[in-house]
Design a protein around this nucleic acid. Structure first.
Length: 557
DNA sequence: TTTAGGG
DNA sequence: CCCTAAA
């Protein structure tokens, strides 16, 4: 097999646009408002999560590797990239200028909404170099203590081996889609029972919010709310004055990224506190490396990058609050009690994103923790279906060319310098660190507000769209072939048990659309093309089970 | 909670 | 995807 040349894109960080103090859903339903006097520390988490979907909504993640402060400390240095202070405006342009903040907020990053997949299963096949289905998956793994490496062997995707419909009922050979909750997924060959958890290591990097500006205002809520209620009026936030924006993070290492807090107007006594308004100028996402075939389209590159970012941002994180470098653990303390609402301009408020681990239990380093960010396979694109069976001897550093991506002022990633000579990739690790940080389009990195579980309607939010990948379709088809069209719960359990973001309703809906897709002409189909072979199976299975259903209705026995 | 369908 | 009546 000829190895396809692959390109290796690296990003050492993304900047996420300024986050407004309030956000609201695309449906016009949600606002976040917190007043200083009664807000708790959690309010900050909420704020931040609205912006970045970082809220720790569910602490029940069962991960082998619990995070610890130590971990956090160990990783601080790689997360903080100092951002030049530009007065707070450069990165939110386009996001709020036209008042379309709401739009971007709701469209981009696929995030978790507290749906958590406790099972971080890595595709064994990819870990062991087996040439099985799992080969094509993207794996987000810790390459070393300093970076997360997203490897996508999508080019190595093997055309799924389809079983004939007849052989299905047996079910013993069914494949299971093991999916991370944030959408990406990979197929694990059920035969593989290797328990090896090669993907182990410290918890994910702690991300840090950078350049956070806090400011208080005497401004009353009346205006406040009106602004929030009207998307068009989100704009004023941008114009707000920020104080002490520049947190000269002299040492990326020790010092936490500081948000600046200004509350010059705050009245501290009694109940007369001003509202604490928070503006997060940007988030920094740690270095990402993306592996993508040369033949991939720009569009797929974008998607891949987005997915990579999403994988990091969208999940596994929660917000930590640091005050003067010390972590505030008590979520029930009010800002006031914590001293945040005071007028001390030197209050250094820091936000950090940290693994969504159970904070109570200390980490067990020696327990061979399974690194949780099993990055899901990237979507199957046409070209990735090409034959690429080579895997076992695949050597990343040799087979990859490095492309430097420079900042792109506008919206797209510009591949500036083309690939380097393969021979020059000996020290690929070095090359990687040279990759420039693209100032990517902010709109493309807007964040998805988290979804409130219940109650507070303000947080309700339509789920982000997550098109089914071909692999998911494959898994769905297979499951339906086996189980029929009326047992979506079982289908879910059978094939999407680990894909927390796919509900049985989703699967049912998907099947519906699949049937529809299969019936229309290829020209009318949209989205990532589903192999005709799969669509044929859809029709076959659909017909078969429809018939079964009829039989049962006539003669239920 | 799941199913089943319309929106 | 959402929303929900029904089961």
């Amino acid at each position: 097999m000829v190895l396809q040349k692959r390109l290796n894109y690296g990003f050492n960080g993304f900047q996420v646009p300024t986050i407004p103090t309030a956000s609201r859903s695309a449906r016009g339903r949600g606002t976040i408002r917190k007043r200083c006097d009664n807000s708790e520390i959690q309010a900050f988490e909420i704020l931040a999560s609205v912006a970045g979907n970082f809220l720790q909504e569910n602490d029940s993640s069962i991960l082998d590797n619990a995070a610890s402060e130590k971990d956090h400390h160990d990783f601080t240095d790689l997360n903080i990239k100092h951002t030049k202070d530009d007065g707070g405006g450069s990165f939110n342009g386009g996001l709020f200028e036209n008042g379309t903040c709401i739009e971007t907020v709701s469209t981009c990053l696929t995030g978790s909404r507290g749906e958590h997949d406790n099972q971080r299963v890595m595709g064994e096949s990819s870990l062991h170099g087996n040439n099985l289905e799992g080969q094509g998956q993207n794996v987000l793994e810790r390459e070393d203590e300093r970076m997360i490496h997203i490897k996508g062997n999508s080019g190595g995707l093997i055309e799924p081996r389809h079983r004939s419909f007849d052989s299905l009922p047996d079910g013993s050979t069914g494949r299971k889609l093991v999916t991370r909750d944030d959408g990406e997924n990979f197929v694990r060959c059920t035969q593989l029972s290797s328990k090896n958890k090669k993907i182990s290591g410290p918890p994910p990097d702690m991300l840090k919010l950078k350049d956070i500006s806090l400011f208080t205002s005497e401004e009353n809520n009346s205006r406040h709310s009106s602004v929030l209620d009207d998307p068009q009026r989100m704009y004023p936030f941008k114009k707000r004055k920020f104080f002490n924006q520049t947190s000269s993070s002299a040492s990326d290492r020790g010092s936490h990224c500081q948000g600046i807090f200004d509350s010059s107007d705050t009245k501290v006594n009694g109940a007369n506190h001003g509202a604490v308004k928070l503006s997060i100028k940007s988030f920094k996402v740690p270095e990402l490396f993306i592996d993508i075939p040369e033949t991939a389209t720009i569009g797929s590159l974008k998607r891949t990058v987005l997915e990579a970012v999403t994988a990091v941002l969208g999940d596994e994180l929660h917000v930590g609050i640091l005050l003067q470098g010390k972590k505030i653990r008590d979520d029930n303390k009010t800002l006031f009690q914590t001293g945040i609402s005071q007028d001390d301009k030197r209050h250094r408020l820091g936000f950090m994103l940290e693994p969504r681990h159970n904070q109570i239990s200390p980490p067990s380093y020696n327990k061979d923790p399974c690194f949780l960010t099993t990055y899901p396979r990237q979507k199957l694109s046409r070209q990735s279906t090409s034959l690429m069976l080579q895997q076992g001897t695949y050597n990343v550093s040799q087979e990859h060319s490095l492309i430097k991506i420079e900042s792109c002022a506008e919206s797209d990633l510009n591949v500036v310098s083309s690939l380097t000579d393969t021979s020059a990739n000996n020290n690929s690790s070095k090359c990687r660190t040279l990759v420039a940080v693209p100032a990517i389009n902010m709109g493309a990195l807007a964040m998805v507000p988290f979804r409130r579980k219940s109650g507070n309607h303000d947080f309700s939010q339509r789920r982000i769209r997550r098109p089914f990948s071909v692999l998911e379709v494959e898994a769905l088809v297979q499951a339906v072939e086996k189980l029929g069209t009326g047992r979506w719960r079982d289908v879910k359990q059978c094939a999407f048990d680990n894909a927390k973001h796919r509900t049985y309703v989703d699967l049912k809906d998907k099947w519906k659309t699949l049937v529809h897709t299969a019936r229309i002409s290829p020209q009318q189909r949209r989205g990532e093309p589903v192999p005709q072979e799969l669509l044929d199976r859809v029709l076959t299975a659909h017909a078969y089970w429809s018939q079964q259903q009829c039989k049962h209705q006539l003669k239920p026995m």
